[in-house]
């Protein structure tokens, strides 16, 4: 249990949000040209980091907007929050 500061609504309980997993995975521009290996890499393979992770969250029980969070997955401490499209902070 932890608190997340939504960039639009402010600090709320984590239970108001839906986790969207690893951030900055870009959809391939030409999916038809990918090999099966590359498609599996995009679709299934994840960093699943123990430590500082860049991830997406959705304020599903609030403004319903998506944004990015930098969180230490070893202790759930949030380092930074930034909006979609913004440059990821250096941590």
């Amino acid at each position: 249990m932890f608190l997340i500061t939504c960039p639009f609504c402010g600090e709320r309980e984590q239970s108001e949000f839906k986790a969207g997993g690893e951030a900055h995975i870009e959809r391939p521009k030409q999916p038809t040209e990918l090999s099966d290996d590359e498609w599996a890499e995009y679709l299934f393979m994840r960093k699943n980091i123990k430590g500082i992770q860049f991830e997406r969250w959705n304020h599903s029980h609030g403004c319903r907007k998506w944004f990015n969070v930098v969180r230490d997955t070893s202790n759930d401490e949030i380092k930074s929050v930034y909006k979609m499209g913004e440059k990821p902070p250096t941590i």
């Binding site: 249990m1 984590q14 986790a19 997993g21 690893e22 991830e55 997955t73």
Partner: peptide, 13 residues
């Protein structure tokens, strides 16, 4: 819980 975590503690909800 639906988020990735290695903290060995989950949410109360």
């Amino acid at each position: 819980d639906d988020y990735i975590s290695y903290s060995q503690k989950g949410s109360h909800d």
